[in-house]
Design a protein around this nucleic acid. Structure first.
Length: 501
RNA sequence: GCGCCUCUAGCUCAAUUGGCAGAGCAACGGACUCUUAAUCCGCAGGUUCUGGGUUCGAGUCCCAGGGGGCGUACCA
């Protein structure tokens, strides 16, 4: 059967909306038909999910972004040849438009009785099993369109994701924050302790890094006079993959002049509870059968106290690499620490092994040792710790924030210490950024910034066991036999390639 | 990176101790006037991830490689 699909199909509404209208009408078919040939009142379009052919009558189920709705075709109500062609020619997966009249079937199903059916586009490949769907994780990630089509819980995760980001944007806008964009291709990877991806700019014949954090650029923006700014965007870190880590992940960072970290503690608690309430309808999140309660005051834990209670190691006393290394190994917390050269890396390892897994309910973790973050402001009463906090939930860090270091002299000194560590073999230190120091020398107001891992928040809120389930197309290895080139391998064709777009 | 598990038809899964590779759904042909995963009849569908090995005989056992999952290490 030859179909000639049109490029456009005007509907009178989305499926869920039309279905509600039909249900509200509520007239059985006999009643509608008693008045003679019923007039078409609605036009809908969607993908054919079911097509049940019963001789002189057939029922189809269409699906669009709002839901599903049943349509029916009667041979007696249209040209028999057309009916036959549609009954035989339409397959699951095809897109069709249906113009028809409203009625309720004997079983109570709101249905659009077709006067005219338009095939909008055929599907040449078969749909996944209509009942079993797609379960294979590999297939779900590589062919996400099939996953979204047949797995409602996957659909819903991405709807929640979108709603959360949208809500967060509005909230920040309402608080007087301005959304800005800063470079992803940068000369120095800064703002976090992580290994970067590197790439090459041909015309400049120079290597660049994909940003691991927008932090130092956002501070430059604040220095420029925009007192409250935020950016929602991708960060890239050249690290391993697991349930709570992705190579590219979406981060919200904001900076507010004249705030300190305590202002951010209050702000993030307000924002997160409001976001959960608005997008999931509750401030309680189920996590493997444990109810995570966001709607209360979150406990505040002192970092070094927790580490001391969990391990017996007092980081206020143990201040150098070698002693700490000895303490860790002698207590059997870790054995192979031979290549770890920085105090910060050891502290971090200690905390992640012993403390973090026990932090299940939402909590604030504050006053990390000063060595951990070279961009954070020291505490006035105890300069060996930072005015900093993290929000930890279910063993996942979803927020990191601190009062910012805005003293250029101290900043330069602390970045120099990072450079020395790098020279000693720690490849996850920050790089020196002279331009950032210079910006600070021109003057920066006191401020506090905050970073929120959007993917993790969405995964927690939707019960997704892994971040790959809340990212549409997570990075995977090349599929066997896949001829597509990875983006990094793309070679421009001969000639000008710059007028694409 | 390392360790463990896994890969069978388009999809979801079977296949006894190593003994003829199967089912449901989808597809294809047909029947059917109220279906809801419609039902019924028929038909077809395979490099059992790839390559090697052991064996009279391998989906099954062994070796190497690839994809995926989980754990672990690094990171948020």
């Amino acid at each position: 059967m030859p179909f000639s699909p049109p490029g456009r199909y005007v509907t009178t509404g989305m499926l869920a909306d039309v279905q509600a209208l039909v249900a509200a009408d509520g007239r059985p078919h006999e009643e509608v038909a008693a008045d003679g040939a019923p007039e078409a009142t609605d036009r809908v379009a969607g993908r054919v999910m079911l097509w049940r052919h019963m001789g002189k009558r057939l029922f189809g189920t269409l699906q669009d972004g709002t839901g599903r709705m049943q349509v029916s075709l009667f041979r007696d109500e249209m040209d028999p040849d057309t009916y036959r062609a549609l009954a035989k020619g339409v397959r699951m997966g095809d897109f069709v438009g249906v113009e028809g009249y409203r009625y309720i079937t004997g079983k109570g199903e709101p249905t659009l009785g077709a006067r005219e059916v338009t095939v909008l586009q055929r599907a040449l490949e078969p749909m996944p099993d209509k009942w079993a769907g797609v379960h294979d994780a590999d297939l779900r990630y590589r062919k996400r369109y099939l996953d979204l089509l047949v797995n409602p819980e996957s659909r819903q995760r991405f709807q929640v994701r979108s709603a959360m980001i949208s809500f967060i944007r509005r909230w920040l806008d309402d608080q007087g924050f301005m959304e800005v964009e800063t470079p992803m291709l940068t000369a120095a990877a800064s703002g976090a302790a992580a290994r970067p991806f590197s790439t090459h700019h041909n015309a400049l014949d120079r290597d660049f890094f994909l940003r691991i954090s927008p932090e130092t650029y956002l501070k430059r923006v604040v220095a420029g006079g925009f007192d409250r700014v935020y950016e929602i965007g991708r960060n890239f870190r050249n690290e391993g993959i697991d349930a709570s880590h992705l190579q590219e992940f979406t981060m919200l960072e904001w900076y507010a002049a004249y705030w300190d970290y305590t202002d951010n503690m209050e702000a993030i608690r307000t924002l997160l509870t409001a976001t959960l309430e608005a997008t999931t309808g509750s401030t309680t999140v189920d996590h493997d059968g444990v109810a995570l309660e966001f709607g209360v005051q979150w406990p505040v834990y002192d970092y070094r106290t927790l580490v001391r209670d969990a391990t017996g190691i007092d980081l206020a006393v143990v201040r150098d690499v070698d002693t700490l290394k000895a303490e860790i190994t002698s207590r059997g917390i870790a054995d192979d620490l031979g290549d770890t050269v920085s105090y910060a890396a050891l502290v971090d390892l200690l905390y992640k092994r012993t403390v973090r897994p026990g932090l299940v309910q939402p909590c604030f973790l504050i006053h990390h040792p000063a060595e951990l973050v070279p961009l954070a402001r020291r505490n006035d009463d105890d300069p060996s710790v930072l005015d900093m906090f993290q929000v930890v939930v279910a063993g996942w860090e979803i927020v990191k924030a601190y009062s910012e270091l805005v003293d250029p002299i101290e900043q330069e000194q602390r970045l120099l210490e990072q450079v020395e560590l790098r020279a000693a073999g720690d490849d996850e230190t920050m790089m020196m950024e002279d331009d950032f120091i210079e910006a600070m020398r021109h003057g920066m107001p006191p401020m506090s910034g905050l970073g929120l891992g959007i993917d993790r928040l969405v995964a927690l809120a939707t019960g997704a066991p892994t971040l790959r389930d809340v990212v549409l197309f997570p990075l995977l290895r090349e599929a066997p036999g896949d001829s597509a080139q990875a983006p990094g391998d793309a070679t421009p064709a001969v000639g000008d390639a710059d007028d694409a777009n």
